[in-house]
Nucleic acid binder design. Sequence first.
DNA 1: TATATATCCTATCTATTTAGTAGTATTTAT
DNA 2: ATAAATACTACTAAATAGATAGGATATATA
Lengths: 137, 137
Amino acid sequence: MISNKCKYAIRALVHIANNEQDDKPVMTSDIAHEQQIPRKFLEIILRELRNNCILESKRGKDGGFRLLRAAEDISLTEVMRIIDGPIAMLPCVSLNYYRKCDECEEESCEIKAVFEQVRDRTLDILNGQTIKSLTLS
Amino acid sequence: MISNKCKYAIRALVHIANNEQDDKPVMTSDIAHEQQIPRKFLEIILRELRNNCILESKRGKDGGFRLLRAAEDISLTEVMRIIDGPIAMLPCVSLNYYRKCDECEEESCEIKAVFEQVRDRTLDILNGQTIKSLTLS
DNA sequence: TATATATCCTATCTATTTAGTAGTATTTAT
DNA sequence: ATAAATACTACTAAATAGATAGGATATATA
């Protein structure tokens, strides 16, 4: 399962993408209100996306958030990895967060090959999706 | 990510399948020792598998656990669902544990279709795997 | 330059889940 | 009887999820 936090992040990014025509940054409170996301929690999420080069922010009056890159250059997997970490179902088959499994020997692991397949088919789908492809227009 | 508990469950079942030739039930302590799984934790897991019609148990001396069904009739998905719950990445696309998402309207949900695809491709792979297909022989 | 308004940052909180452990009751083969 | 196995109940510690509170800092504009 992906976390609520990650769903919030995706919805917020899609909202920003849908409202970026008029060059002005989008405010946290607007997103929070329209997408029904707790404002203070959303602040944390948007800051995290900014720290990871998905968004840029402008402080002070008339401030807010803008996409740092084009919506078609922000993949769903990138957002999911920033917010939730690994996408793979086993640490030892994760491409971006590889960790050795605590107790199993990888050479003799019965399930590794299966979950490598699951990872590959999952990424086939998710890598093709971007914030752009998730917007209405 | 699947939980350690679920990995333990799969390894334990494969171990039992690999040791069922001599009609005797397999003891928790043997599995725990050979698979490096904490014994008391493994007890809980095996009981859960028994309660869900994957294993049968025999109490008392010379007791232990046996597969209730043939190893080729126990799918990986069935075990994963018993131990970890849903396999899908969104509650609203889960086949066996459907729940409406808290805040998003399903009709206008941007990501639902994508995660339905992920679910289908994942199940294509996992449904084909059984305890039998994971054993050595 | 004062002020309103936005993000930024640190700290804290509660509930749930994960990963166990401890101890006792019950069953069964010998 | 007794040894040896599962069954059951209760508890614990650490991590994660899902936030909330309050003040610091930056900025547009009157």
